[in-house]
């Protein structure tokens, strides 16, 4: 039955998606294109583009997209459920242990080293995104380092000040900058 197959395939993807993000792409590709034949290479590329243009993790987007194409709305729901099921059980169990044992000395010692590591990981992801946003063409130190995407830099600085110095609500800042970017695009269109 197609719903069971969808559930099981994305259950496996959810279970094996360790490390997250683009690290899971080859595995999704293998399951969805090669093992099941649910998608062509071209459709998979469309999925990647769509994932970048819509919110949400790529594994969830892949589940919904594939489920929808193969078996409609119910397929999308079933595939997405499959993808989050393993995390639901495993992470809730971990959360239980964390709550129960977090005050133990050994656990605190362990976490005291994991915390700075978590900051390092966030910083690494942050650095990659900041570079990608402000220098969309990539950094070449002789020329493009001095010519970043000016519009992105302006929004970046304004947002940074709003968040850090004025403690503006984060959701509102994100939506505002989206609206401003759209408005600027429309005005440019009229002027030309």
């Amino acid at each position: 039955m197609i719903y069971l197959e969808l559930y099981w395939t994305f259950f496996q993807i959810g279970l094996l998606a360790i490390g997250g993000g683009y690290a899971t792409l080859p595995m999704i590709k293998e399951r969805v294109i090669i093992a099941q034949g649910w998608m062509t290479q071209a459709e998979f590329l469309d999925l990647l583009t769509l994932s970048q243009m819509t919110p949400g993790p790529i594994a969830i987007n892949a589940s919904t997209f594939t489920g929808f194409r193969v078996a409609g709305m119910l397929g999308a729901v079933v595939a997405t459920l499959g993808c989050v099921s393993p995390a639901c059980v495993i992470v809730t169990t971990l959360a239980y242990f964390y709550k129960k044992y977090q005050s133990l000395k050994r656990v605190q010692d362990m976490l005291s080293v994991m915390r700075p590591a978590a900051v390092g990981l966030i910083a690494s992801a942050g650095a990659a995104i900041i570079i990608e946003t402000l220098w969309p063409g990539g950094i070449v130190f002789d020329t493009s380092f001095i010519t970043p995407d000016v519009f992105a830099v302006v929004i970046f600085i304004l947002s940074f000040c709003a968040l850090r110095f004025f403690k503006a609500p984060v959701i509102i800042v994100i939506i505002t900058s989206g609206a401003v970017a759209l408005a600027v695009y429309l005005i440019k269109g009229w002027l030309n």
Binding site: A152, V153, L163, A181
Partner: peptide, 14 residues
């Protein structure tokens, strides 16, 4: 274009 603006804010947030 809207996405581009939102991404710049997300970068600032990071």
């Amino acid at each position: 274009s809207a996405l581009k603006g939102m991404q710049a804010t997300v970068a600032a947030l990071l």
